[in-house]
Amino acid sequence: GYRAAINLLSGPTPPDAIFCIADVMALGALDAARFGLGLKVPRDVSIVGFDDIPSAAWPAYDLTTFRQPIEAMVGRSLSLLFDPADFPPAAIRIPGELIIRGSTNIGPATV
């Protein structure tokens, strides 16, 4: 995450925001922006993660992230494995939750 963010943010047209595939990568991106390049997050760039790991809520990171409903996902998966006849082929959606913290310029009124 650190190295990728350095590359992205040092380019000729740096992004306004970075969405990372995992919070661990987003934490690296935050460190790169703030300490590697001296940028202000979220003033100069917004950074969002995916997972909502415990360290995302630490004050040093305050990472906006997308929380996956792990328990619901595991429960639904186990139901499909143990009772496949009850579940014909279908797309199954289990909604997650956007957790807005201080690494983005968005607020509840704009979501």
Rank of each mutant, 00 (worst) to 15 (best):
Y2S: 02
I6M: 14
N7C: 14
L8T: 02
L8K: 00
L9H: 13
L9W: 12
T13Q: 13
T13L: 15
A17K: 02
I21D: 13
I21R: 12
D23P: 03
V24C: 03
M25A: 14
A26W: 11
L27E: 05
A29R: 01
D31M: 10
A32T: 14
A33K: 12
R34S: 05
G36Y: 11
L37C: 06
L37F: 07
L39W: 01
L39N: 03
L39G: 09
P42Q: 05
P42N: 02
D44N: 09
S46Y: 06
I47Q: 00
V48I: 12
G49S: 12
F50K: 05
F50R: 05
D52Q: 10
P54T: 08
A56G: 11
A57H: 07
A57S: 10
W58F: 15
W58T: 05
W58N: 12
P59E: 06
P59M: 00
P59H: 04
D62G: 07
D62M: 10
D62P: 09
L63F: 12
L63K: 02
L63D: 03
T64A: 05
F66D: 00
R67G: 01
E71D: 13
M73R: 01
S77C: 15
S77K: 07
L80R: 11
L81F: 13
F82P: 02
D83S: 14
F87W: 14
P88I: 01
P89W: 09
A90R: 00
A91G: 07
I92T: 03
I94Q: 09
I94C: 06
I94F: 05
L98S: 00
I99W: 08
I100M: 12
G102H: 03
T104H: 03
I106C: 11
P108S: 15
V111W: 03
